[in-house]
Amino acid sequence: MNHFPEAWGRPRDDVYGAYNSTYLQTSGPKAHTTSPAVTGTSVLGVKFKGGVVLATDNLASYGSLARFTDVKRLRVFGGKAVVGFGGDVSDMQYIDRLLESIDIRENYSSHGNMLNAKNLHTYLAKVFYKRRSEFNPLWNHILVAGFDADDQPFLSSADLLGTTFSSPHLATGFGAHLAVPILRRKFPDERGIETISREEAIEALKECLKVLFYRDARSLDKYSIAVITQEGIDLREDEQIEGQSWAFAETIRGYGSQTS
């Protein structure tokens, strides 16, 4: 046994094997983040007549561990736009600091030239694209909601590669698979956002959050929801998914202990 002080308190090599130090990079090129650490799951958004709703749950996972259960993933920018973050939480906090400094700079000379949600989305997409081009990505998929220069409701997405797209309803991560089909059924393209009321949009998102909580193992029943209208932003950050029914779980077959 090794009695030298540097080994004190360390797992014994003869029992546990030598410390696997392969993850510590000693040579080669500088490596950046190649995978996210603490992550948030889906972000959901829907446009309605006169505004946009955005929702996320309040969970930050560390792999499969539900690590932080009170993390707010909706960030307000300048009282007119909201950014919803999925993906790495530390990168979210970095972007949040970035937005803070832009907000201060933009408001420093207030001449009615505030950046709107569309400008903000363009900027953030550029930040993502620049970082991916440096092979040092910000590991996020975000939704930006608010209004464009013509005061029309605006909802658009940007991800770690700098890819952008816009649609009357959007969802990132698992939501893209589970929530978007629900939203497309509720609000088909032919309907147009003029026929969607604020209440209907909020209800739809709550329904989607519930479905996600049922099926996405990295989700939580505590969520945040932001309603952005011309009157301002109504942000609620300590909401609880209501009307859950797990009765359907009993009928599920095909995995776990019930394989038939």
């Binding site: 029992v15 696997n20 392969t22 993850y23 995978s35 590669l161 890819t163």
Partner: peptide, 23 residues
């Protein structure tokens, strides 16, 4: 031993960032 002499963890995953996607 108290545990396994061989490292039991799966070999360190080689994540690499792929900067492209097909849209």
């Amino acid at each position: 031993g108290y545990s396994f002499s061989q490292p039991t963890a799966a070999p360190v995953k080689e994540h690499s960032f792929y900067p492209y996607t097909d849209n």
